[in-house]
Computed example of a mutant assay.
Amino acid sequence: IMNATVTDNLIMGGTYSIQLRNGRGRLVMRDNKLVDGSWVYGPVDSECAKIDWSGNSLVTIDEQYRVTSTVGPLPCAG
């Protein structure tokens, strides 16, 4: 990956819902919402020291994919 900016998304599912690894250049993960408990192994598996990570949160949604509540902040992990 050369420069990646991931902002303002609703994310759900996957083994790890967010994986940002082996990137070069500027890596930004900001203001995304991850559906709580939607992953298989964990919410995040990323190279945190290389990423501008802020404002990401765990949320719940309704049947129309509208955010119904914020569970809490989503820290980077890896």
Rank of each mutant, 00 (worst) to 15 (best):
I1A: 09
M2Y: 06
N3I: 08
N3S: 13
T5C: 10
T5V: 14
T5W: 00
V6M: 11
T7W: 00
T7P: 00
N9M: 04
N9S: 10
L10T: 08
I11D: 06
M12D: 05
G13I: 04
G13N: 06
T15A: 13
Y16I: 03
S17T: 05
I18W: 02
I18Y: 05
Q19M: 13
Q19S: 13
L20S: 03
R21K: 15
R21G: 08
R21N: 14
G23P: 04
G23N: 10
G25M: 10
R26W: 03
R26P: 01
L27Q: 12
K33C: 12
L34E: 06
L34S: 07
L34W: 03
V35P: 06
V35M: 11
D36F: 13
D36W: 09
S38C: 13
S38Q: 05
W39L: 03
V40T: 12
V40E: 10
G42H: 01
V44I: 14
V44D: 03
S46L: 10
E47F: 04
E47D: 14
C48K: 01
C48P: 05
A49W: 00
A49I: 02
I51P: 01
W53Y: 10
W53D: 02
W53L: 06
W53E: 06
S54A: 15
N56E: 07
V59T: 02
V59G: 00
T60S: 15
I61K: 07
I61E: 08
I61W: 07
Q64I: 01
Q64Y: 00
Q64F: 10
Y65R: 12
R66H: 15
V67H: 06
T70V: 15
V71P: 03
P73M: 11
P73A: 14
P73R: 03
L74I: 14
L74G: 09
P75D: 11
P75T: 11
P75K: 01
C76I: 15
A77E: 14
